[in-house]
Design a protein around this nucleic acid. Sequence first.
DNA 1: GGGATGGTGC
DNA 2: CACCGCACCATCCCA
Length: 524
Amino acid sequence: HSADYFDFAGCADKEAAVKLLQEAFDNGLIEKVTYDAKRALHLLTPLGIKLEALHDDVLLQAYLLDGERGNYDLLELGCSYLNSSLMADRENALAQAADITLQLCDQLNPRMSEMQVDKVYRDIELPIVPVLYDIERAGFLVDTKVLAELSVVMDAEITRLTQAIYQLAGREFNVGSPAQLGDIFEELNFEVSKRTTTGKISTSRDVLDELAEKYELPRLIIEHRELAKLKGTYVDAFPSLVNAQTGRIHTTLNQTIAATGRLSSTDPNLQNIPIRTEMGRRIRRAFIPADGCVLLSADYSQIELRLLAHVTQDPVMLESFKHNEDIHERTARAVFKARTPEELKEKRRVAKIVNFGIAYVIGPFGLAQRTGLSRHEAKKVIEDYYATYKGVKKFMDELPQQARDAGDIVRSIYGRMRRLPDLSNRNGQLRARAEREAVNMPMQGSASDIVKLAMLHVDAALKREKLHAKMILQVHDELVFEVPRDEVERTGTVVKEAMEQAIKIDVPLLVEIGLGDNWMSAKP
DNA sequence: GGGATGGTGC
DNA sequence: CACCGCACCATCCCA
């Protein structure tokens, strides 16, 4: 083979150039191999060029073969997978890139078959590229007026808090500086025990919570931090990120970052928009649909817990989901022997925390911290939990060794692979961490598979049904759509069906649909 | 520029 | 004693 490049920028007759490119890219008989197909779509689509017969994307291949190598630069991949010693060719960098891409593809395809990640590649990662592209291009409409008003409100509140903090501290200082806050703690003779890794006084949230029981100042610091965080990260940042052409915010969905197969979102990250606090919810209300549309949010209900039931085959948990029970309530009754309504209320709270914690292999320490139980009580709770969910216990105990036997590899249900070399590390702490990551992968990784499959199914179903809803975001277990008002009902049905039937596992998948005039009110 | 610290989400 | 999985991003502060 040979490689060449086309200097589009230096071309006098742009129209003729586009036409030439179009003939090649539109032609479904000419198979294309890319490095970063989503980027190619961003470049080609505005020129009116379709990318047909996308056969391979070496960036995705490299990610699926090793999701934890941070660097996917083409030359780095070349060094790792090609025999030839590569030197960056400054003269012919573009031709070289094309050449390396094709060579890599030939190397990586057989490796993918060997490692059995070809299925997740062909069925999920490669076909989802245009769906992700469409989401990025669609963007999310934001009411900047709501944000501007919020900014003023927050500013006034931050100023008020700052003055009150100065009063209590006895002097002025930079409230945003943990180091200076630490100095204040010393001056006020607060009993501060926890230190950071670098020996400084810790001013983290749990330290502040502790101190807040006795003092006013830390309470105000907590409030100040919340507001400063929300204002700085979201309210004041978003207006400048609104695209001048579209008037919308266009995030980037990264497909090759998370080791578990999740997407990540940057510039801005729309996957961590606040929801917990009242101020946070007010920010969510700034995310709105276009005129004539409503927002539709579709959430998988407890997808990771359902997957826990599926992969562990725990009979109690399977049964519970099959009967569509409230799993936290079931746990409260079965594990914590809740009987009366009052008991149930409190024990359900703890049960919920344990259920969520279990996916991360929560220990007595972590559970105690989250529930307010003592370490001793937390230990007992975990024991009781495993006594009820024996299949879960067995799975937790056996998976790390199974993974070691498989060559320090764990997989999601669709065959997505995660390498965990530290499963065999002699350092106990690193090994323990790898074991937690191993246990988490079947849940988080499989959930990623399912949501991605769902995105493909929904995309196809909307096209098939000639519906005009646009998918505008994915937030791990949630899909957000902008839907024309007169199609809301049918779209809801189609989306729910496509998501719930995305894959067949041993428990039903349940999707909750919400509608609203902003992202907050659309949350089911 | 980058580590340390802290804080949002699922 | 030790921190519980996956991300992104802000500010501070020293280099």
